[in-house]
C-alpha cells in the first residue's frame, strides 16, 4: 500500500515515541555514561574516554563474570535445549493425562524470579536444605555439598535453579514445533520401515529446525542477561565467584558507586548479545520471506 505514506507513521507515532523515551534513548545514554566517571551521586562528572574499558581488561572480577556467563551459555544451550526437547518428545506422545504432566512441568515458567530464588534457597541451603538433607537421609551424604558457598560449584547450583524454569520454556517451544510436524510424514516413514531413532533423526528433527533455532537464540540471550536468580540467591558471591556480567554491572553501579564503570560493563554485555540478536532477527525475517 503505497497510496498514503503518512498513514503507517500516524499509527506508529505513539508507540514509537514511548519506545524511544523509555527504551531507545536510555540505551544511548548508557553508551555515553560509559565514557564518564560518574559515581551516581555527584552532580558533575568528567568524560574520561576509554578509561573504563581499559580498566575492564585488567579487572579479574570482570573476567570471572564473563567466564561465568560462558558457563551459563553452554549449560543453557547444550543442557537445557536437549533436555527440553527430550521432555517435549516424551510428553508429546498420546497417553492419558498428558496434559496434566505438561502443565506441571510448565508451572515454574509462571513464577517470579523472586519466588524462584526463594524456593531454591531452601533447596540449596547447606545444612537443612532439601537437597542436602535428602541425600543424607538416603545415605548419600557425599553428594551433600555447600551449593551456595563453595566457589567451585556455586555457579552450577545457580544454573540448576534457573534451568528449572528455562527447561520448561524450551519444552514449550519444542512442543509447539512438534505440532507442526505432519503426522502423515512420520507415519509414511514408519511404513517405509524406519525405526524410532531414524524417524526422529531423519524426519522429526529436520522439521524442528525452526523451533531449535529460536530455542537456541532465546536461551543464548537469556543466559547472557541472567540476573535475578544470581542476585536473589548469592548477589554474585562468595567474593564474586558466581557473578555474571549483569550482576557485576548492577553491583558496580548501585553498590560501588561506579555508574560510569557499570555502564561500560552493560555496553560490553550489549555488544556480545547484539550478535545473537542479529542472528535471531535474520532467521526470523528470512523464514518469513521464504514463506510469503
Amino acid at each position: 500500500m503505497k497510496s498514503k505514506t503518512w498513514v503507517p507513521y500516524a499509527f506508529l507515532a505513539l508507540p514509537l515515541t514511548m519506545y524511544a523515551i523509555w527504551v531507545i534513548f536510555p540505551i544511548f545514554q548508557t553508551f555515553v555514561l560509559s565514557f564518564t566517571n560518574w559515581d551516581g551521586v555527584s552532580p558533575k562528572f568528567d568524560l574520561i574516554g576509554f578509561e573504563n574499558y581499559k580498566r575492564l581488561f585488567s579487572d579479574p572480577y570482570f573476567k570471572l563474570s564473563l567466564n561465568n556467563n560462558v558457563k551459563w551459555l553452554l549449560a543453557f544451550v547444550f543442557g537445557n535445549i536437549p533436555l527440553g526437547l527430550g521432555i517435549a518428545l516424551l510428553l508429546d506422545q498420546k497417553f492419558k493425562g498428558d496434559r496434566i504432566y505438561k502443565t506441571l512441568v510448565f508451572l515454574p515458567m509462571t513464577l517470579s524470579f523472586v519466588v524462584i530464588g526463594q524456593i531454591w534457597s531452601w533447596m540449596l541451603e547447606p545444612r537443612y536444605g532439601a537437597i542436602n538433607s535428602f541425600f543424607r537421609a538416603i545415605g548419600l551424604s557425599t553428594f551433600a555439598k555447600p551449593w551456595l558457598s563453595d566457589p567451585k560449584i556455586v555457579t552450577y547450583a545457580l544454573i540448576a535453579a534457573a534451568s528449572w524454569r528455562q527447561i520448561a520454556y524450551a519444552m514449550v517451544l519444542f512442543l509447539a514445533g512438534l505440532k507442526n510436524v505432519p503426522r502423515e510424514l512420520v507415519e509414511a516413514a514408519y511404513v517405509d520401515g524406519a525405526n524410532k531413532w531414524e524417524r526422529f533423526w531423519y524426519v522429526i528433527l529436520p522439521m524442528l529446525r525452526p523451533a531449535t533455532i529460536i530455542a537456541v537464540t532465546v536461551n543464548v540471550i537469556d543466559s547472557l542477561r541472567a540476573f535475578d536468580i544470581v542476585y536473589v540467591l548469592t548477589r554474585g558471591g562468595p567474593f564474586y565467584s558466581s557473578s555474571v556480567l549483569a550482576n557485576y554491572m548492577y553491583i558496580q553501579s548501585f553498590h560501588n558507586y561506579n555508574m560510569g564503570y557499570g555502564a561500560s560493563i552493560a555496553v560490553i554485555q550489549f555488544l556480545i548479545t547484539f550478535g545473537f540478536i542479529l542472528v535471531y532477527l535474520l532467521t526470523a525475517l528470512r523464514r518469513e520471506e521464504s514463506t510469503v
Partner: peptide, 24 residues
C-alpha cells in the same frame, strides 16, 4: 528498520536501561 528496533529493544540486556530510566 522499525521492526528491527522494536525487536532489538526487547532482547537487549535490560540493565542498560536502569540508570537512565530512573533519572528520567
Amino acid at each position: 528498520l522499525i521492526l528491527f528496533i522494536f525487536v532489538g529493544g526487547m532482547l537487549i540486556p535490560f540493565q542498560m536501561l536502569l540508570i537512565p530510566v530512573y533519572r528520567f
